[in-house]
């Protein structure tokens, strides 16, 4: 498997580390215990397109958001995760 880093270009899997599902959003402060339990523990086991966080630790050290199909391993999009290239925020 290869990932096309938006900063570095196409690289082999060995340069990346998988974090996990990019879908769960941290609940707002004061959210119910159920919502927090969901966020911390529950994950969908998707057969098809998923959104995942990958870290290009063996390269530019940016966090990436990858859309990948778990059935085919086809990657349909790779974008910088929020915060990557932070110097452009607000610029």
């Amino acid at each position: 498997m290869r990932i096309v880093c938006p900063f570095c270009g196409e690289r082999e899997l060995g340069e990346f580390t998988y974090l996990g599902d990019a879908k769960p959003m941290r609940p707002v402060a004061g959210a119910s215990e159920d919502e927090v339990f969901d966020y911390v523990y529950l994950r969908d086991n998707v057969a098809g397109e998923t959104s995942e966080y990958w870290y290009h630790g063996g390269g530019c050290r940016a966090w990436l958001k990858v859309t990948r199909n778990t059935l085919t391993h086809e990657i349909s999009s790779v974008e910088a995760a929020a915060g990557a290239g932070a110097a452009k925020v607000g610029a």
């Binding site: 900063f7 570095c8 270009g9 290239g85 932070a86 110097a87 452009k88 925020v89 607000g90 610029a91």
Partner: peptide, 23 residues
């Protein structure tokens, strides 16, 4: 954070070139 353009300008002033924004 948010200072990418400003850094490019300061680098240009110091070195005469903008810093690389690609590999």
């Amino acid at each position: 954070r948010g200072k990418g353009a400003e850094l490019a300008k300061a680098t240009k002033a110091r070195f005469g070139v903008v810093p690389p924004d690609a590999p």
